[in-house]
Amino acid sequence: MSSIVVMGVAGCGKSSLASAVAAVLGWPLIEGDEFHAAANVAKMRAGTPLTDADRAGWLDTLGTELQRHPAGALLTCSALKRSYRERLRAALPGLRFVHLELSRAEARRRVAQRAGGHYFKAELVDSQFEILESPHGEAGVLTIDATLPREALVDQVIAWNQETRA
């Protein structure tokens, strides 16, 4: 069985979709944001984008977390660059990705409306779009419109999972 990473820029709905799909599949949910080092969280709170070096240890930790769930898990992770996705794939061969796509304007709007003072600031959305390397054409990737109703997104992911399950 292969785990799934729900990926995309901030505000695309990774957490809500992954949580819903995990509940249907009976898989554990791994919230990638919970594994950021304190220094990374402090940088984001200050409005400073993370670098590849900042993300390296985080990605390794997420790979280790995925390995702890051989029966499958749902991971939320921006996975913005192909090298980040390859690093996760190296930790868990056969790993699949659901890319939630949305416009820059919609991502900014959603992040600005977040409740609870999330550490990721709306002004960081642009930096995510600047480094985003689309996963179009990569094997094991489903790209879906993040603006669809959650139920429709869940249905798409569940159907795709059944079709592509290894």
Score class of each variant (00 low, 15 high):
Gly57Ala: 14
Asp52Leu: 10
Leu74Asn: 01
Leu74Pro: 04
Ile158Lys: 00
Ile144Lys: 00
Ala71Ser: 15
Lys121Met: 14
Leu66His: 10
Glu138Asn: 10
Glu123Ser: 12
Phe129Gly: 02
Ala112Met: 04
His118Met: 07
Tyr84Asn: 00
Leu102Ser: 01
Arg108Trp: 11
Ala79Pro: 05
Pro93Tyr: 13
Ala53Asp: 15
Asp52Ala: 08
Arg114Trp: 05
Asp52Asn: 09
Gly140His: 05
Gln128Phe: 00
Pro70Asn: 15
Asp52Arg: 13
Leu92His: 02
Gly137Met: 11
Ala112Arg: 05
Gln128Cys: 02
Gly94Lys: 00
Gln156Glu: 06
Glu86Tyr: 05
Lys81Ile: 05
Leu100Gly: 03
Ser78Phe: 08
His118Gln: 06
Arg104Met: 10
Ala146Ser: 07
Glu130Pro: 08
Ala115His: 11
Ile144Ala: 03
Arg108Ala: 07
Glu123Lys: 09
Ala53Met: 09
Arg85Asn: 06
Glu101Ser: 13
Ala107Glu: 04
Trp58Pro: 08
Ala146Arg: 05
Leu88Tyr: 03
Trp160Pro: 03
Lys121Arg: 14
Arg96Tyr: 09
Ala79Cys: 08
Asp126Leu: 12
Pro93Asp: 04
Trp58Glu: 11
Ala105Gly: 14
Leu88Arg: 01
Arg109Pro: 01
Arg110Glu: 00
Gly63His: 07
Phe120Ala: 11
Pro135Cys: 05
Arg82Asn: 08
Arg109His: 09
Gln128Pro: 01
Glu133Val: 08
Leu102His: 03
Ala105Arg: 12
Ile158Leu: 02
Gln67Ala: 15
Asp126His: 08
Gly63Tyr: 11
Ala112Trp: 01
Glu106Asp: 12
Tyr84Pro: 06
Leu59Ala: 11
Pro93Asn: 09
Ala107Leu: 02
Leu80Ile: 11
Leu75Arg: 02
Asp60Gln: 15
Thr64Arg: 14
His99Gln: 12
Val154Met: 00
Ala152Met: 10
Gln128Ser: 06
Ala115Ser: 14
Arg96Asp: 01
Ala152Arg: 11
Ala105Leu: 12
Arg108Leu: 10
Thr61Asn: 08
Ser103Ile: 08
Ala105Thr: 09
Thr147Lys: 04
Thr64Tyr: 13
Leu95His: 00
Ala159Leu: 09
His69Ser: 13
Glu86Leu: 05
Thr61Cys: 15
Ala159Ser: 09
Asp54Gly: 10
Glu163Trp: 12
Thr76Cys: 06
Pro93Trp: 02
Ala53Gln: 13
Arg108Asp: 08
Glu138His: 13
Ala159Met: 08
Gln113Ala: 15
Val111Thr: 02
Ala159Arg: 04
Phe120Arg: 03
Arg108Lys: 13
Thr143Ser: 15
Ala53Cys: 14
Pro149Val: 01
Gly137His: 12
Ala159Gln: 07
Ile131Lys: 08
